[in-house]
């Protein structure tokens, strides 16, 4: 049942490309931001300033490349959110507020990624001229921002989860478990609030709870949502007879 809220050319190729941006974002984020930027895992909060500074000085080109690429592709998260939003238009009708929340949440997620990546880039720009504690402060600032900006992404996840739960199709575009997964991930991000209070242990930025678990559930999020978004686009195309 296509609710057909749109009458214009849907450009399925472009739509699917936008949906694939979720995977593009995640691949770039993991390799360039994570691996080259030494953020997978990050230096612990109690790591000596000399260790953090040493990384910036010895791997400045790798960090620059990582962050330049991360900043370039950060917007792909918003592009992905728009592709999901268009599927939501079909699922729950055009102009629904939950769709707006999903799209805005995805769009705003770009900001902390962009700004925090620029901090890491700043640290790698002239690390030889900066002292150890200044480089550590830049690294800290970047992590505090990217972790504590979780709420904008939670808005996307709540919008998506609660939105697709309203899909009344016999076989909804997104299974209920995916909707609730989305809500749960957004909900559990609140554990990031503990991060500024710890420099070591499970809740510090590289700890098992605040990094390994929180980032793992986030890294699993984009592939799952992208898979169902692409499936939904295929179904809409068939339903529309295009």
């Amino acid at each position: 049942m296509a609710s057909a809220p749109m009458t214009e050319d849907n450009s399925y190729g472009a739509w699917k490309f936008c949906a694939w941006n979720g995977m593009i974002f995640m691949a770039v984020f993991m390799y360039f931001w994570g691996w080259l930027g030494h953020n997978l895992p990050p230096f612990a909060g109690d790591a000596p300033a000399s260790e953090v500074a040493g990384y910036f000085r010895n791997h400045s080109d790798a960090v620059r490349l990582g962050m330049v690429t991360s900043m370039t592709f950060a917007v792909s998260y918003a592009v992905w959110g728009i592709a999901i939003g268009k599927v939501m238009d079909y699922a729950i009708g055009r102009g629904h507020i939950l769709t707006d929340l999903q799209v805005w949440g995805a769009g705003l997620t770009v900001v902390p990624i962009l700004v925090s990546s620029s901090f890491w880039l700043l640290g790698s720009y002239r690390p030889e001229a900066l002292d150890d504690t200044t480089l550590q402060m830049i690294y800290d600032a970047a992590w505090l921002l990217i972790d504590l900006a979780y709420a904008v992404t939670s808005v996307q996840m709540f919008g998506l989860g609660f939105g697709f739960l309203r899909d009344k199709r016999a076989e909804p575009f997104f299974p209920k478990w995916v909707c609730w997964y989305s809500i749960w991930v957004g909900f559990m991000f609140i554990a990031e609030c503990f991060m500024p209070f710890f420099k070591g242990g499970a809740f510090n930025r590289s700890g098992i709870l605040n990094f390994w678990i929180e980032f793992s559930i986030f890294f699993a999020y984009a592939p799952i949502i992208t898979w169902y978004t692409l499936k939904a686009i295929g179904r809409i195309r068939v339903e529309n007879g295009d």
Binding site: W180, Y181, W184, A202, L209, I213
Partner: peptide
Amino acid sequence: GDEGVFFFITADMAMFALFFLV
């Protein structure tokens, strides 16, 4: 109730189980 809620509950309890383990 809604079986989707049980996914949320299971995931949440798994997270707390990890907390308890830590």
